[in-house]
Amino acid sequence: MPHKRAKHSDRVAKRFSLGQDLAPGANDGFFSEMPKGAMRILQGAKVQEAHRAKLEARKKAEQDALTRAKGKAKASEASTSESNDKAGSELTIRPGEKLRDFNARVEQAMAGDVRASFRSATRSQINARKRERRKLRAAGIDPDADPEDLEQQETTRKAKADKAAALQASEPSKNDLKRQRQTIQQTGEIKDFAKASQVKKINDVAQAPPTLTRAPRGESVQAKTRKARLMAKITGNDEEEAERKVKQAEKARQKGRVPEKLAAANASATNSKKRKAASGNEAPAEPSMARQRVLDEERQKAIKAYRQIKEKKIQESEVKRAKRA
Rank of each mutant, 00 (worst) to 15 (best):
A23R: 09
M110S: 12
L177G: 01
Q315R: 15
G236R: 01
N203F: 15
I303H: 09
E219H: 10
R226A: 08
A61G: 05
E33D: 14
L295S: 12
A78H: 04
A242C: 05
P147W: 02
G218A: 01
T183H: 12
G256V: 03
P259M: 02
V294W: 12
T187C: 02
S120P: 02
N281M: 08
I41A: 08
Q315L: 14
E240S: 06
M1L: 00
A45I: 09
A166Q: 08
K304N: 15
R257E: 09
K135I: 03
A61L: 15
S279P: 02
P259Q: 03
P147A: 01
A69H: 06
A223I: 06
S288E: 08
E77Y: 14
G88V: 10
A267W: 05
R257D: 09
K86C: 04
Q168T: 08
E189I: 01
A215V: 11
L230A: 10
K7M: 01
D192S: 04
G37R: 11
I314C: 01
F118H: 12
A111G: 02
M110Q: 15
G280A: 14
A116I: 02
R321D: 09
E286K: 03
K323C: 00
R58W: 13
V106F: 15
A111E: 13
Q315G: 01
H8Q: 15
A196E: 05
E239T: 13
E250M: 09
S9E: 07
G218D: 15
E97I: 03
A169Y: 07
S117P: 02
A78Q: 09
R123F: 11
L42A: 07
T225D: 00
G19D: 14
K178T: 11
T235Y: 11
N27G: 04
E148L: 11
K201Y: 10
A249R: 15
N271W: 13
K178W: 09
I141W: 04
E107S: 07
K274G: 04
K313N: 10
K251W: 04
